[in-house]
Amino acid sequence: MDLSTGRSIKILSVFDFDGTLTHHDSFIPFLRFAFGRRFFARRVVRLALPTLRCMRRKLTRDELKEVLIKTFLTGVDEQWVRQKAEAFCSAYWNKLMRPAGLLAVSAEVSSAAEVTICSASPAMVLQPFADRLGIKLIGTELEVKDGVLTGRITGHNCRCGQKVKRLESVYGELSDYHLRAWGDTRGDYELLAAAQDAHWRHFHPAWSKRRSPLEKLRMSAIS
Rank of each mutant, 00 (worst) to 15 (best):
S121P: 05
C160A: 14
G75M: 09
Y92I: 00
A87K: 07
G75L: 09
V164D: 05
V67Y: 12
S119Q: 05
R56C: 13
D146E: 15
E108C: 06
P122D: 03
R53Q: 14
D77F: 06
T74A: 13
L167H: 02
E78C: 10
L142K: 04
S119Y: 04
T154N: 11
A120N: 11
V148T: 13
A112T: 12
A48H: 09
V115Q: 05
V164T: 11
E78M: 07
D146S: 14
L64D: 02
K70Y: 11
V115S: 02
D77K: 12
R166Q: 14
K65T: 07
I69L: 13
C54K: 13
A104F: 03
K70T: 13
N157M: 04
Q83C: 10
A107P: 00
S106H: 09
N94T: 09
R159Y: 07
C158V: 13
N94M: 06
I69N: 03
V125C: 04
C118M: 02
E143V: 04
A104P: 03
W80A: 13
V105S: 01
E63I: 04
V144Y: 10
C118F: 06
L167S: 05
R166I: 00
S121Q: 12
T51K: 11
V109Q: 12
K58T: 12
A107F: 00
S110K: 13
M97C: 03
Q83P: 02
A113I: 05
P99I: 00
A120D: 12
V76A: 03
L167E: 03
L96K: 01
R53C: 06
T60L: 10
T51M: 14
E141G: 04
G151T: 07
G101N: 07
S119V: 05
K70H: 14
E143F: 03
F88M: 03
L133E: 06
D131R: 13
R159G: 01
L49T: 11
V76N: 04
Q127F: 05
H156D: 14
G161K: 09
L59T: 09
G101T: 01
W93E: 04
R53I: 06
G155H: 10
G139N: 08
K165F: 10
A130T: 00
A112L: 08
L68W: 04
M124F: 01
K84D: 06
G75A: 06
E114D: 15
S119K: 05
W80E: 12
D77Y: 01
P50R: 04
C89R: 03
A85L: 09
W93N: 06
D131A: 14
L137I: 09
S119P: 07
L102S: 01
C160L: 05
K136M: 12
P128I: 00
Y92P: 00
C158Y: 03
K84N: 12
C54I: 01
V81S: 00
A91T: 12
E63D: 14
S111G: 08
L133W: 02
D131C: 11
S110D: 14
E141V: 14
E63W: 02
L126W: 10
S121L: 01
W80D: 11
